[in-house]
Structure formats: structure tokens, C-alpha cells
Amino acid sequence: MSTARGRRRSALAVAAVILLGAFGFLLYGGIDSNVVFFLTPQELLERGTAAYDVPVRLGGQVQPGSVKWDPEKLDLRFVVTDTGGEAVTVHSTGAPPQMFRDGMGVVVEGRYHRDGVFQSTGLMVKHSNEYRKPEHGDRPQEMYKSLTKGAGS
């Protein structure tokens, strides 16, 4: 009986050490607070020549009015901006996700080339945490269809 109790006590001690250790790890910055899934245009441009030709994710907002879509060649060009006003031109091929449009958040995977164009190998749409009913006059189903049509499918 005493051995069982002793074993339980040592297990409790081990669990306590693991728990406290993990909490300390979290609290005192063991986890890098700079874990980022993507770079903003500003962060990418700040890297200077080190930004060229390395695989990276670029995230920001699709600059309104910058989208140029060629449905025959499935060729897409647009500008990604951040709140600081920095902008990077992105070139992508293939139909974008259905929610892609002016002003939407995006994350682009690819490489930034020396000609100043970010060549995309994958395009993701980043949705905000907002859910809103359509404003008076909006017709979401048609908006949604027009998005798919815009993608040239």
C-alpha cells in the first residue's frame, strides 16, 4: 500500500513539474512571439535583396482596382498592400478562390523576383472574423455566382 501511495506521489510530482515547466515556458517567452504565417509587403521589402527568389508567404489586402484577370490565359495580376501603404505586385496563374476580390485579405505563396513581381504558386483568401447580413440591395447568391464567373470557370 505504501509503495502504491509512493508511486502515486512521485507521479504527482512529475506531473506538477511538467505542468509548471510548460507554463513557465509559455509565460516567459519560450515560444517565439514572432511566429508568422506570412510576411506583410513592408516586411518583405525591408529584407532587400535577401527577399529575392526564396519561397515565402506574402499576406495583405488586394488593392481595390488593381485586379487584372485574363480569363482566356487564366492569368491574374493584382497588388497586395498593407496598412503602411507598401505594395507588391503579384502574378498568379489559374482561377483564384471564389471569395477573391477587391479589398479582400489574401495570403500568397511563392517567390519575389528581381523584376519586382511576386510569382505566386498558391493563392489563399483570408477571411475576417466578421459575419454580416447583406446590405439592402445586395444579392449574395448573385455576388457569389459573379465571383465564380469572374474566375473564368
Binding site: M99, K133, P134, E135, P140, Q141, M143, Y144
Partner: peptide, 10 residues
């Protein structure tokens, strides 16, 4: 009861 969302519809 909920309307389609402005961005993503149903």
C-alpha cells in the same frame, strides 16, 4: 433563420 453572409453566402 439566418441570411446568407455578405462575403461567403450560405
Amino acid at each position: 433563420t439566418s441570411p446568407p453572409d455578405r462575403d461567403m453566402g450560405h
